[in-house]
Structure formats: C-alpha cells, structure tokens
C-alpha cells in the first residue's frame, strides 16, 4: 500500500485550480485559432480574436480567464492501493480550493443552499466524483465550471425506439435552445446510456476529453464528427453573433444501459472549458 498525505492533495488541488482558471488548455486554444481562421462572419471573427487575445492576457497578467471562475468539479481516480493519511479526502480538496481561490483572486460563486443563497465566501464545497481504480496512483482532475454554460445542459430519457436519430435530434435541440447563452464556441459533452445520473456523469466526463481527440470507437468518432458539422450548421456562431463556429467539438461517451432505456445527457462547456489533470 502507498500512503498519500492529505496535505499533498490540498496542495495539488490548489495549484490545479490556480492553473486552470488562468491558462486555457492548448488543444482549445488551437481549436479557437483554427476556427478564427475559418470564420466567415466579421463580428464573429472580431469576437474570436478578442477571445484568443484574452487567453494570452490572462497568462501574462496572471488573471482569471473569465470572471465566472465556476463551481469546481473534481474528478478523482483513487488507486485502490492508496491509503489517504492525515484527514479526509473531501476536506483536503475543499481546503485546496479555498486557498487557491483566495490566492488567485478568483470570484467566489458558491452559495450555501439553493433557497437561502448565502455565499459561502470561499467557493467551496466542490462537486467531487470519486472512482476507485487499479494501482497506487491518485489522479485529480479539476474543472472550474461556469454557470453560463452549465445552466444550458439538458437530459432526456428517450425511448429505445428513438435510437441514434433521437439522440442526434436531442443534441441539436439542446444546442439550439442554448443559443448564444453558453458562450459559444462551445464543447458539447454528450453521455448516452447507463441510467439518469450515469448519463449526466458521462456528459460531464466527455468535457474532460481534449477537443482534438475523438472517441476510440470508430462509429462514435464518426458520430462526433457528424454532430460537430450539424451543430456548426445551426449558424449560432461565437457568442450567438452568427457564423460557422458554434462548437469546437462534440465529445460523446457511452455506457451499457437497460433494455427499456435510452438516456441521453448533454452538458455544454463554454469556449473557456478549463481543466487540469494531475497524477500524484
């Protein structure tokens, strides 16, 4: 068994959220650059240019890319040969977020209760998803998720008879309903299968995959490409200004499901889908 102290987890989370909020992943920057080169609408090109300049400025000035520094989703893969020492995993994660958001001068956007709505003042708690894995490593992925895009997600329990066309229609419906709200160009995270919460988790997990990596299954990779083309033909464009860049990628994840079910969830990520993954 390998021992990992909670202090190391706190430090890792703190550094990860500070990096994530300031430095956009290179695959997204590259996709934005390519979109900017291909965009036909002048207003859309102007906005894409500002978005790209923003990614450089944030790093230069050590400032948050976006004022909505999100509620932090933390995906933990815990090797089952690891023993966590000195405290509790969730507390260690929340402490890392508290320290990172303080030191990074990030906005605190979490309220204590959906009805009372009092700001917790330190951007905690995080939303932690923990899965056991083989081995003696601990992988922590942080995704500070803004509400502009998160609020535009939808889930539907389709009938199996609706099949792949039902899924395609639903993806287009969610993107169309969202329009300019989720800060396009978006990344559409799609989860198909499992049950209700599994589909939602798959959709979130799909957002963690780089935009330039297609699903390893050929049929799903083709579906991703087909849906990206269809989404971009909606003409919503960057920030809803019109144009041919509505999405940078459609990432689809699937899971076995019940004979009677065809759950599909679409979780939208904005153009500033900030993620950092670290292995301890």
């Amino acid at each position: 068994m390998r021992q990992i102290d909670v202090k190391q987890i706190t430090q890792t989370v703190k550094e990860a959220v500070m990096q994530a909020n300031i430095s956009l992943p290179p695959d997204i920057i590259q996709a934005l650059q390519e979109a900017s080169d291909k965009e036909s609408s002048p207003s859309a090109r102007r906005f894409l240019k500002i978005i790209l300049e923003n990614t450089e400025l944030a790093v230069q000035e050590n400032m948050a890319l976006c004022q909505d520094t999100g509620m932090v989703v933390v995906d933990v893969e815990l090797g089952q040969e690891v023993i966590i020492q000195g405290g509790y995993l969730n507390e260690a994660i929340n402490l890392g977020i508290r320290e990172g958001y303080q030191q990074g001068f990030f906005r605190k956007s979490v309220v204590n209760d959906p009805f009372q709505r009092i700001n917790t003042g330190d951007n905690t708690p995080a939303i932690v998803h923990c899965n056991l894995a083989e081995g003696d490593k601990l992988r922590i992925t942080v995704l500070p998720k803004g509400a502009g895009s998160e609020n535009m997600g939808q889930l539907s329990m389709l009938k199996p008879a609706q099949g792949i066309n039902g899924v395609k229609d639903f993806i287009l419906k969610v993107v169309r309903d969202a329009g300019g709200n989720p800060c396009p160009p978006i990344i559409a995270g799609v989860g198909v299968g499992g049950n209700m919460e599994k589909a939602a988790l798959l959709a979130k997990r799909a957002l963690l995959r780089p935009v330039n990596i297609r699903n390893s299954r050929n049929d799903l990779a083709r579906l991703e490409e087909e849906m990206l083309k269809a989404v971009n033909e909606l003409g919503i464009g960057p920030q809803g200004m019109g144009g041919n860049t509505t999405a940078l990628a459609v990432n689809i994840e699937v899971y076995p499901t019940h004979i009677a079910s065809l759950p599909v969830a679409v979780n939208l990520g904005c153009h500033s889908t900030r993620r950092v993954s670290v292995e301890i």
């Binding site: 906005f47 500002i50 978005i51 300049e53 923003n54 400025l57 944030a58 000035e61 400032m63 948050a64 890319l65 976006c66 004022q67 909505d68 803004g146 502009g148 300019g180 800060c183 920030q239 809803g240 200004m241 904005c270 153009h271 500033s272």
Partner: peptide
C-alpha cells in the same frame, strides 16, 4: 449591446 463572454481579462483592461 453584446460583449465578449469569457474575455474577462481582456475586458478588465
């Protein structure tokens, strides 16, 4: 008027 969502560092300038 629409401005650029997500361009927080640029707009702060």
């Amino acid at each position: 008027l629409a401005t650029v969502g997500g361009a927080g560092a640029y707009l702060a300038r």
